[in-house]
Amino acid sequence: MAFRSSTRWRFRQPSVIPGFGLALGVTLTWLTLIVLIPLSGLIWRSSGLGWSSFMALVLDERTVNALTISFGTAFIAAVVNLFFGVILAWVLVRYRFPGKRVIDAMVDLPFALPTAVAGIALTALYAPNGWIGSFLEPLGIKIAFTPAGIVVALVFVGLPFVVRTVQPVMEEIDKEVEEAAATLGANRYQTISRVLLPGLLPAGLTGFALAFARGVGEYGSVIFIAGNLPYVSEIAPLLIIIRLEEFNYPAATAIATVMLFLSFIMLLVINSIQAWSRRRYSNGA
């Protein structure tokens, strides 16, 4: 399948490196077969529904509730992760303490641990008879089998996104900037809030958006701890599966399309944050 690169692909800049046609051909074929055709199949199916019936399916009360729960809990979890993730990144970059390496490696656990395993472990911990749940029970706090349980699962899943986007940026901060702020009379609090944190804003927002986007679509870790009560703790991905099991394909397709559309918007937002931060902060770097 080796194309004669000079005649076939004129849109690329000349290079002595061979294999462009083959590499791009494999990439595009695989991308089209695995990702593009299946995804456009979904869009095509949903466009076949017609606008009014599509809207009727999307505005169904149970669907709206499920979407609200998915996006609401993912938002809260991302806020929690932004706060604790920045502290954790700061501690890992700036301070020395025993076991630091292990903690640093542990941050990636949610990437490596299968979501179903995380789901049953968190449920066992936060259930009324679990280690943590039994502490909270007398205080009247219920986590498992309520929307709060969904937030707990999504905090677990989203944590590495914030830490791993903020951490490298923090490592790059020039100590001289802080020294300059200090010599100009800023106290430590002012240096952190006016000098350091604004520089971390783009990375923080990117991490937040990544954690949020991941949380919205998350399924495996949530369904065990959520209790899955319709209108209360039923997430949108679960409702898709329920509709599929009822052979209600139009409803499953409609919910999936809305979620897909919203994730595309998230992707655009993430990309524009990164473009903005490159423009804003590239001068000094």
């Binding site: 986007a213 679509g217 679960l238 599966i241 999936a256 897909l260 992707l267």
Partner: peptide, 8 residues
């Protein structure tokens, strides 16, 4: 694929 829900 990273930004698509696994269920989808």
């Amino acid at each position: 694929p990273f930004s698509v829900s696994p269920v989808i």
